[in-house]
């Protein structure tokens, strides 16, 4: 059993992480071709770096990568800002309330992802609930362009990813030693100073984990930008989708995916170091 477990872990990694990655890498150095599948494998059509050079030189792809990182960074920052007080509140809640509150936090997951996005569309579109209510109250005369905007995009991101930020923060904050905060207060620190000089610095590993758990999936996100974001949002997830399924240019899509992975590894390393520094 003891020898079997690492073996199983290795097999899992090989089957579900290494193998797909290898497939994508091989795809990225293949040549595009007419037919099914729409490419020639390197050992048939020869190794081609065209896809990489296209992705790296064409401003459209570079912009989509940058846009994805910006949106993901923004979404992760927003989630973190909102998750921190929520997680802190959870740790300070009475023990009898903690279960129900955590349950409420996870409740949105009980509904499918698309219906939840659909609900936002229903709320935000021109004839949606928000605009209707505002119009009936006489606060606005024409509908506000709420949907297909940056705020709508970030609202959707926040809604979808907030629990991923709250949970690691909650885990980290609930393990903190309350005596440290008492010691700070005893030495003359006001509650705000206690928070900024003791609670917050000690929560950095948890915050780094929370940031990454939002940042990584958000960088590849394409449904929310597509359905809620402004038209033509340059996000790599969307571009990947278009290259695979509309342009059927698999090598370019694969090269883009490899590049995105490389770009994501940098912040992962950075945050891992932040997380293990102490």
């Amino acid at each position: 059993m003891r020898r079997l477990l690492p073996l199983a872990g290795g097999a899992w990694l090989a089957g579900f992480v290494a193998a797909p990655l290898l497939v994508v890498l091989v795809l990225a150095i293949s040549t595009a071709a007419e037919g099914v599948p729409p490419f020639d494998l390197p050992w048939i059509g020869g190794i081609s770096l065209d896809a990489f050079s296209l992705v790296l030189t064409d401003g459209f792809y570079v912009e989509s990568l940058g846009g994805a990182l910006l949106v993901a960074g923004g979404a992760a920052t927003l989630c973190l800002l909102l998750a921190f007080p929520m997680a802190l509140g959870l740790t300070r809640a009475r023990p009898t309330w903690r279960g129900p509150l955590l349950f409420a936090l996870l409740l949105p997951f009980w509904t499918g992802f698309l219906p939840r996005i659909g609900a936002w569309i229903g709320l935000l579109r021109d004839e949606g609930w928000v605009n209707t209510v505002l119009e009936n109250l006489g606060l606005i005369s024409a509908p506000l362009p709420l949907l297909y905007s940056w705020p709508a995009l970030f609202l959707g991101m926040l809604h979808a990813y907030l629990p991923f930020a709250v949970l690691p923060l909650y885990a980290s904050l609930s393990r903190r030693d309350p005596v440290l905060e008492e010691a700070a207060a005893d030495l003359g620190a006001t509650p705000w100073t206690v928070f900024f000089s003791v609670t917050l610095p000690l929560a950095i590993p948890g915050a780094a984990a929370a940031f990454l758990l939002v940042f990584i999936p958000a960088a590849g996100e394409y449904v929310i930008p597509e359905l809620l974001g402004p038209p033509g949002t340059p996000m790599v997830g969307r571009v990947l989708w278009q290259e695979f399924f509309q342009n059927r240019d698999w090598p370019t899509a694969a090269a883009l995916a490899v590049l995105l992975l490389a770009l994501l590894l940098a912040p992962i390393r950075l945050f891992q170091r932040l997380g293990t520094r102490r």
Partner: peptide, 10 residues
Amino acid sequence: MFQSYALFPH
């Protein structure tokens, strides 16, 4: 002075 000393680890 606290029993666990409560030194700030950071």
